[in-house]
């Protein structure tokens, strides 16, 4: 019964709810902004890598993109955050939330890039050949024929990345930001409830609900995109 009393205490004490709300807000802001940056970077990198297979001029940018992906995927995001906060953006008074957004955006970009590249390359080469044969330019073929089909393929993978991103943001307290996990830690700290267990369970519930919402929205989008499919 202690557990339920603890739950009741959290949900009925305004101070605790305000703390958790602030954490939730920061988590959502970081996730949303980082996802936008990640999507943008991912698209850019994916297109550069695809273009490099056709044109010599793109070889150097593609090499840079490969290095970017190798470095970002090859190091833990916690360390990237650490380096960003204490070396790259080690500027007095620089808002930490922007550091976090940029770090997670760059991190997410590498994963999204590979997802998108896989999606584009999974579209049959015959589609490109047909477009080019009809006299469309390369970019029109990509934009009007290949990419719309690719989007349908990458939505589940991007959704996965978004969900992973949301949960990864739980490490931002390392540099002094209050996110959902850390707000639970505050609620559980000495002066407040002096017990970590119940607040952590509450935070877990919030994550679960958020992920469920994201998953549901993605399911709706996928269903809409699959309307023309015959499977």
């Amino acid at each position: 019964m202690d557990f339920f009393n603890g739950l009741k205490e959290i949900f009925t004490t305004q101070k605790y709810m305000v703390t958790i709300a602030e954490g939730l807000e920061n988590s959502l802001i970081i996730t949303a902004c980082a996802a936008a940056i990640g999507l943008f970077l991912g698209l850019l990198v994916a297109f550069v890598k695809i273009a490099a297979t056709k044109s010599k001029a793109m070889k150097v940018p593609a090499a840079i993109c490969n290095l970017y992906i190798a470095v970002v995927r090859g190091t833990p995001v916690a360390l990237q955050l650490f380096i960003m906060a204490f070396a790259v953006f080690a500027i007095r008074g620089f808002p930490l939330i922007i550091t976090a957004i940029i770090t997670f955006g760059i991190n997410s970009g590498a994963y999204v890039a590979e997802n998108i590249r896989a999606g584009i390359q999974s579209v049959d080469i015959g589609q490109t050949e047909a477009g080019r044969s009809l006299g469309l330019t390369y970019s029109t073929t990509m934009g009007k024929i290949v990419v719309p089909q690719a989007i349908k393929n990458v939505i589940p993978a991007i959704g996965n990345e978004l969900i992973a991103l949301l949960k990864e943001t739980s490490i931002v307290s390392m540099v002094g930001l209050i996110d959902l996990t850390f707000s639970a830690k505050i609620v559980g700290s000495g002066q407040n409830m002096a017990d970590y267990f119940v607040p952590m369970c509450v935070a877990a519930m919030f994550y679960l609900v958020m992920v469920y919402i994201i998953a549901t929205i993605l399911k709706l989008i996928e269903r809409r995109l699959r309307q023309s499919d015959r499977r």
């Binding site: 305000v18 703390t19 007095r92 505050i186 700290s189 000495g190 407040n192």
Partner: peptide, 20 residues
């Protein structure tokens, strides 16, 4: 015009969180 003080706010009563 600002003093920035770092701390570890899990060391009551010297420093702890009251709300945020």
């Amino acid at each position: 015009d600002e003093i920035i003080v770092f701390t570890n706010a899990f060391f009551a009563p010297f420093e702890y969180y009251d709300g945020t």
